[in-house]
Design a binder for these strands. Structure first.
Lengths: 138, 138
DNA sequence: TAAATACATTTACGTCTGTAAACGATTGAT
DNA sequence: ATCAATCGTTTACAGACGTAAATGTATTTA
């Protein structure tokens, strides 16, 4: 995914923390249940993916290094918490996706998803209202 | 981005070709102007990014290897063409993004972009119509 | 207190990616 | 025909990622 700038045959992280594919799965669990132990995270993910506990611990470690997570010792184990807000991460990742794949054009992206047909009637209604608000503002 | 499954300490490509961040930039140019030479691609990208020609050639090479591009010799140089349709790539990448970041929920994603406020009045109108169609279908 | 258990930390390894220089082949010009 | 310019191919390298085993450390149990 995005977020790294490279020079001189090497790559460095950009200012914004970038959460990898697999790491997003971990973050979803953490945002939902924080503060949470590695155990609980592993248990929660066990229903969704097929990773060994060691793998998830590696991710936790990397997320801490990236300053996306922080932890608090609690006896033997850690309690993990997010250091970045879910909404902010969504925003950044969405913007990066929009730029990368849709060249920054929000309308085609929206059209794409609206036409994908995954929306329920209620969702459509909600969006209609949101669109009205968006229209009124300008 | 997504698309690789790993086993045994190694990673292998999944069935779907995955286009990296930087590669998307190249692909946008190609979809717009194909068939197109490396020269033209490099020239077009020169206005947008700060990569050396060599870098872009590497990407072209990798995209060919990934079977995202094909080429046709034309004397000394190649004419590059996409082997995958833009719309199909958008679809796949969008789906993967939706799953990864929004847990597969299209409505929150759409709400997010509608509220981002980047839409013009005309775009809002267009989307309103699309929503009506989407609603009528179900 | 010693052994077993449960955690976290370190090490590992192959692939992908960003970035580009070096090298080889082909073509155009003199 | 040879030299220079052009274009594609190979090689390079460091960081990120997916995946996980091995190792070290602290806690619980016998």
């Amino acid at each position: 995914m995005s977020g790294n700038a490279c020079v001189n045959g090497g790559c460095v992280l950009s200012n914004k923390p970038n959460i990898s594919d697999a790491e997003w799965q971990v973050m979803h669990v953490i945002w939902e249940r924080q503060p949470v132990t590695a155990q609980a995270i592993i248990a929660a993910l066990d229903e969704q993916v097929d990773w060994s506990g060691a793998t998830i611990k590696t991710m936790l470690h990397r997320l801490v290094k990236k300053k996306v997570l922080r932890y608090q010792r609690e006896g033997n184990r850690y309690l993990y918490r997010a250091r970045v807000e879910r909404s902010e991460s969504l925003r950044q990742e969405s913007q990066s996706f929009l730029d990368r794949v849709f060249g920054g054009e929000a309308a085609p992206l929206l059209a794409h998803f609206v036409q994908s047909g995954d929306l329920t009637e209620a969702e459509i209604e909600t969006l209609r209202k949101l669109l009205e608000q968006a229209g009124g503002d300008s």
